[in-house]
């Protein structure tokens, strides 16, 4: 746990200049653009390749969104540090 948070801190120090607060949480601008790109292209990709039946494009698009979300979650590290109050005492 300790080791992990140090690694996180180091990499964040490098990116410090680009971390900003959007919607009550800290994000990295580059990561944010990357995630929007991944999710949007997965969604639109799913939508556009789907067979031309009613509701199919929407369904494929939703699957695309889920895939986009999973991919971005895997490649982007949350910029939060989490600790429990009781653990420190």
């Amino acid at each position: 746990m300790d080791e992990k948070s140090t690694i996180n801190k180091d990499s964040e120090n490098i990116e410090r200049g680009n971390n900003i607060e959007v919607w009550e949480d800290v994000v990295n601008i580059k990561d944010l653009l990357l995630s929007i790109l991944i999710c949007a292209s997965a969604a639109m990709g799913g939508y556009l390749i789907a067979p031309d039946d009613p509701q199919k494009p929407l369904l494929y698009g939703l699957v695309g969104v889920v895939i986009g979300f999973l991919v971005s979650s895997m490649i982007i590290k949350p910029k939060r540090t989490l600790r429990f109050e009781d653990e420190e005492k």
Binding site: V22, D25, N28, S35, I38, A40
Partner: peptide, 9 residues
């Protein structure tokens, strides 16, 4: 869950 992914979705 990174905040970026949520905004992206």
């Amino acid at each position: 869950i990174p905040h970026e992914a949520l905004l992206g979705v």
